[in-house]
Write a protein that binds this DNA or RNA. Structure first.
Length: 368
RNA sequence: UGGGAUAUAGUGUAAUGGUAACACACUAGACUUUGACUCUGGUAUUGUAGGUUCGAGCCCUGCUAUCCCAG
């Protein structure tokens, strides 16, 4: 009997090609497109184009039809709002810089969608992510690995997957290059072969997350002062949510040298500016840790650590703490380590695990 | 309404009298989970009115503005 796979299809080229490849390999494929939000919900005109627009659903459906398999649309709007959008807003309101894609993977695609797939008697779900899953006999564990194409690797946003989830997950694009994927789409005559890569946060139109937070989510972020590390007032800022650690542009202030956001203080509603040199951290605390390649960490371990998406990994030591969080010490101080962002630990191309960065300079002293 | 000094892009500075430079900011684009970082471009005829000179930001005069000292 054929192995059954549900492919999460966004309407983009990647997930479409993933479906095509699985079909070629003889899997019994069902396509599923998730309706995650409505335009009204995210403060847009009914007609406006977004990633969950009707066009995208139609693209996915067209591909499914062309390749000859069934296609469903699931409405996960309520869940998406709770688990992704609300968490995103809460994180910003708390002075952090969140990564909603990770939550979407963790709570929606690889949780609720997988659950539904299993209920429908599927063996696996598959997505168009650029990453690889392997089972290690030696460890008796499923491993998450980087994609063969390092420039497209998305293992960073998948660090939160559990063994149970990985066991039922396929990433058909893990060994392909983006150009190869486009070529396959082209040769199959898929409608979205030339569709631009998606980027930015899918539920925020034009990258304007500030107005989304303030107008749609009603997050209040009053103006306050820019100060230097000594507390001298340098100017007025437009609300904490407008800034992230390491930010240089958009401060609307000029000095002899470029200034960067080195800290945000929720209590005093101030944004602290400083020189590039003040951005570096010796280490950080990581909470909500999910481990993949190992069951648990009982002793300090060396790893390469990524503190932001598309940022180079840096060597560090992971030190397990009693409450399950990790203390991470870098070999070389790292730039712009930011609360709310994910820290992902690698051993070469294998994901050891990851978690959420909790980091404020004031904590640095007692922690390190 | 006494004396002195200065006046160059949004900001801070540069330019032996010879066709305005640098940094920051802003802006366009690339990259991008981050209007982030980074990268590549773009943006002023020098407070104002005259004068000297082949030629003035640079010299001279008036005006205006600002700063300092004295009141």
């Amino acid at each position: 009997m054929a192995i059954k796979v549900m492919v999460a299809m966004s309407g983009g080229v990647d997930s479409s090609v993933a479906a095509a490849l699985l079909k070629d390999e003889g899997f019994e494929v069902i396509g599923a497109t998730l309706k995650l939000f409505s335009n009204e919900e995210i403060g847009l005109e009914h007609q406006a184009r977004t990633c969950c627009s009707l066009e995208d659903v139609e693209d996915a459906r067209a591909v499914a039809m062309r390749l000859g398999f069934v296609h469903h649309v699931f409405n996960f709007g309520e869940l998406f709002r709770q688990q992704v959008i609300n968490r995103f807003a809460a994180s910003y309101a708390n002075g952090e810089t969140p990564n909603p894609c990770i939550d979407c993977n963790r709570f929606i695609k690889f949780d609720k969608l997988l659950e539904r797939a299993l209920v429908l008697d599927m063996d696996y779900i598959a997505t168009g992510h650029y990453a690889r899953v392997e089972f290690s006999e030696e460890r008796g564990r499923y491993l998450l690995k980087k994609a063969a194409d390092p420039s497209k690797d998305q293992s960073y946003v998948l660090y939160a997957l559990t063994q149970e989830q990985l066991k039922h997950t396929l990433f058909p694009l893990g060994n392909l290059k983006k150009s190869e994927v486009r070529a396959i789409a082209e040769s199959r005559g898929l409608v979205n072969a030339k569709k631009p890569d998606s980027q930015d946060i899918c539920f925020v139109k034009d990258g304007d997350y500030c107005s989304f937070l303030e107008n749609t989510m009603k997050v209040s972020s009053p103006h306050g002062n820019f100060v230097d590390s000594k507390g001298n007032v340098l100017g007025e800022h437009e609300g904490l949510i407008h800034y992230t650690i390491g930010q240089r542009k958009g401060l609307k202030l000029s000095f002899e040298k470029p200034k960067y956001v080195i800290r945000k203080d929720l209590g005093s509603n101030t944004v602290v500016l400083g020189d590039e040199s003040e951005l570096y951290s010796e280490g950080m605390l990581v909470k909500d840790v999910n481990l993949i390649s190992v069951e648990e960490l009982s002793a300090p371990m060396k790893a390469s650590v990524k503190t932001r998406y598309s940022q180079k990994e840096a060597p560090a030591v992971l030190i397990p703490l009693e409450d399950g969080s990790l203390l991470v010490r870098f070999f070389e101080p790292q730039r712009a380590v930011t609360s709310g962002q994910a820290a992902v630990f690698y051993d070469d191309d294998t994901v050891i695990g990851g978690g959420t960065i909790v980091h404020t300079p004031s904590q640095r002293e007692d922690l390190l």
